[in-house]
Design a protein around this nucleic acid. Structure first.
Lengths: 219, 219
DNA sequence: CCGCATCCGGGGCGATACTG
DNA sequence: CAGTATCGCCCCGGATGCGG
């Protein structure tokens, strides 16, 4: 992008990651780790292929990410954040916090959704209230893809799915699932809104926040 | 700007403040408080007047800022952040932290600079090491305009200048002044680089960080 | 002087088609 | 799978004009 031409740290940052789609590419790499071109495209619905290529080049030139050749038998090029790129975690996190209220309205008619985007609310909202219990896993499905939430020794983590024999599976529309994650939508009401729970419901009780306990509600 | 069409908090945030110049307008209002159109233009060198107008309209429609009619005898319209707009402070702060390393290289040939942009490094870097002493003031000048730093009872604050009888005045090129503020450039070397100190130099010793004590150096 | 509105050229962006 | 090529459009940038 054209430089703002201002000797100011905020302007200099925007010179590098202020381009359209740039921070969303960083979001994808933060959420999913090293990714192939096609995976990035999958996680960035709406992006034009030439723009994705151009941004990847720009961000590589700026030292935000690197291309890496995966060893055989995969034999594919991977895009991976550098240390400098991972330094954008706080920026993306604050943007997500600020944008969270817009999620309460529910998706616009044409909005796309990917389950792995829930990794951010999962790590922001979910806590292990029973750290003395053994490890457990939970699969979230809100469309084609899925997200796996794993908890062990008090630590909650998320990664793109699917899960291998999860203790529970939560399926439903994105808005309802986010409502459940944020604690604003009790499980009973969520079921009325199309959320389906399979497996051990106690995993949910272990992880979910209490209603109204958070500053941000996605209901 | 055109929506990303993604049901994700980060994308929704960028739908609102991802437009070019939008976050820099927020930066200005965070730094200087309620401002007139002309003052904003002064603090945003390089912006086209139609774009400033258009962004102000967009941000007003989004609830980030409000227009307010100043009472006589000023009789001017003021632009002011809403509570929601002030919520962007953390976003701008993290962007500044991430962009700070680019300041170390010094300004590009065509970079503009405004003294009040130093308000961010001032509040990020300066601490009152002698809170038992009375209030003091310091004026920073790096061009036409100036920034006033005031310290009282351990609290350091900054506002656009000029100062009324400051205890000390620091004048010089932007890069050198930032080096002094960040603690990476000792005052002796700074004087070799064109920094001029007038008044009570002890005010500086009271405020400046020790060399190397900060994670970010602007030298 | 302040606070815009209008006009126009250029380039970034978006959608699709195509290729090694 | 991982891009390249093409093309239309709209946003952006710079200049100018203009009413209060």
């Amino acid at each position: 992008m054209r430089s703002y031409g201002q000797y100011c740290a905020v302007a200099k940052a925007l010179d590098v990651i202020g381009d359209r789609w740039a921070l969303l590419i960083v979001r994808e790499l933060l959420l999913t780790g090293p990714s192939r071109y096609t995976d990035l495209r999958q996680g960035l619905p709406g992006i034009a292929t030439n723009l994705l290529t151009e941004r990847l080049r720009d961000l590589e030139a700026a030292g935000v990410l690197v291309r890496r050749e995966a060893p055989p038998p995969v034999a594919s090029t991977l895009y991976e954040l550098t240390e400098r790129g991972r330094g954008l975690r706080a920026v993306v996190h604050e943007l997500g916090l600020w944008g969270a209220p817009y999620m309460a309205e529910g998706p616009a008619a044409e909005d796309a959704f990917r389950s792995h985007w829930m990794a951010w609310p999962v790590e922001a909202f979910l806590r292990d209230s029973r750290p003395e219990q053994g490890p457990a896993s939970l699969e979230l499905r809100a469309g084609e893809d899925s997200l796996v939430v794993e908890v062990a020794e008090g630590v909650v983590s998320a990664r793109p799915g699917p899960a291998d024999g999860p203790d529970a599976t939560l399926t439903g529309p994105p808005h309802a699932l986010l409502g459940v994650l944020s604690g604003g939508l009790p499980l009973g009401r969520a079921k009325e809104r199309g959320v389906d729970v399979r497996g051990d419901e106690q995993v949910l009780e272990r992880l979910l926040p209490r209603a109204g306990s958070l500053a941000v509600s996605l209901t």
